[in-house]
Amino acid sequence: MTSDHIDRIRTDVAHNARVWNYWLGGKDNYPVDRVVGDRVASLHPSIGEVARADRAFLGRAVTHLAAEAGIRQFLDIGTGLPTADNTHEVAQRVAPDARIVYVDNDPIVLTHARALLTGSPEGATEYVDADAHRPEAILDAVAPTLDLGRPVAVMMLGILNFVLDTDEARRIVRTLMAAVPSGSHLVLTHPTTDPELGGEGNVEAMAFWNANATPPITARSREEFASFLDGLEVLEPGIVSCANWRPRPGQGGVVAQFGAVARKP
């Protein structure tokens, strides 16, 4: 890790990747992250459930794509800190030859990236230090590992909520999906304040987050979330709480986080 990355690590301000890690029961966080995480949880008591549901959704979506859709390439943008059942572990369990590129620009995530790079010998697992706001740079960086002439699953779980301008978020998605061929998939989750998913608690919690932590976050409505999927074929059961996307026995429920998987025709 370079001194620049070390300089970028702030231990006095809560950071999303570390707070998310705390909610998932991990140990890669600092006291400030736990203080803010507890305060957010007091305002939005189901936030830990949201984090776990989002992770479980990842597992189900990647398993479907690898086992049933035949996807062998995954571009996971907004990786977060490694926990159990990361994308490459799920994909390569089904298809050992799967190729995965993780993308994040968080220096804390970068310090743990090596833990993400222990994939199967038949496949490939790489990490790219890049910003989701610059999709063109991401596409250039993944070229040595992913064949963009073959279908790719573009995964953006809980990342577009850090792109505050909705038009810019749409542009990012369009740029990425325009670069991959028919048969590629887009996998999305996103927080919402919609009452239908019990999102009212997100309003005060997000306001507290934006005043006390980084990076700033925004929620979006069902209509705004759906706009990211324009031109794609949304797989059943459509846009739902991520906990209710093809739940396995003992899973399911409702959390204030939309989830969807869509195919590029």
Rank of each mutant, 00 (worst) to 15 (best):
T175A: 13
L75T: 10
D76M: 02
A67L: 09
G201E: 13
G80R: 06
L146G: 04
P237Y: 07
I217E: 11
F225V: 05
V180C: 08
R8S: 11
V152W: 05
D54M: 00
L110E: 11
A67G: 08
M156R: 03
R99H: 10
A179C: 07
I100Q: 00
A98L: 11
M156A: 06
P265L: 06
T193C: 13
V240M: 04
V154Q: 01
G59C: 08
G259M: 11
G158R: 02
V152R: 04
L110G: 07
E126R: 15
T145R: 01
T214W: 10
L139M: 11
L146I: 14
P247M: 12
A115H: 14
D147I: 13
T111N: 09
R52Q: 14
F228E: 06
P247V: 13
V103Q: 06
R246C: 06
S3R: 09
G259C: 10
M177W: 01
D106K: 09
I138S: 01
N244A: 15
T118F: 13
T63V: 03
V234P: 03
F74I: 04
I239Y: 12
H190E: 04
N105W: 07
E233A: 10
D230K: 14
A213E: 05
A61C: 04
F57G: 03
L235K: 03
Y22S: 03
T218K: 06
R18L: 14
E122P: 03
T145P: 00
L229D: 10
N244R: 11
R222N: 04
F225I: 13
N16K: 03
R18P: 10
H133D: 12
V36W: 09
E223P: 00
P151D: 05
G199N: 00
H15Y: 15
L148Q: 09
P237T: 10
R134W: 08
S3P: 05
G25F: 12
S46K: 12
D28C: 04
R18T: 15
F225R: 05
G149V: 07
F228A: 08
Q92I: 01
V62K: 00
D104W: 08
N212T: 12
A56M: 12
V187P: 02
A205C: 10
T175M: 07
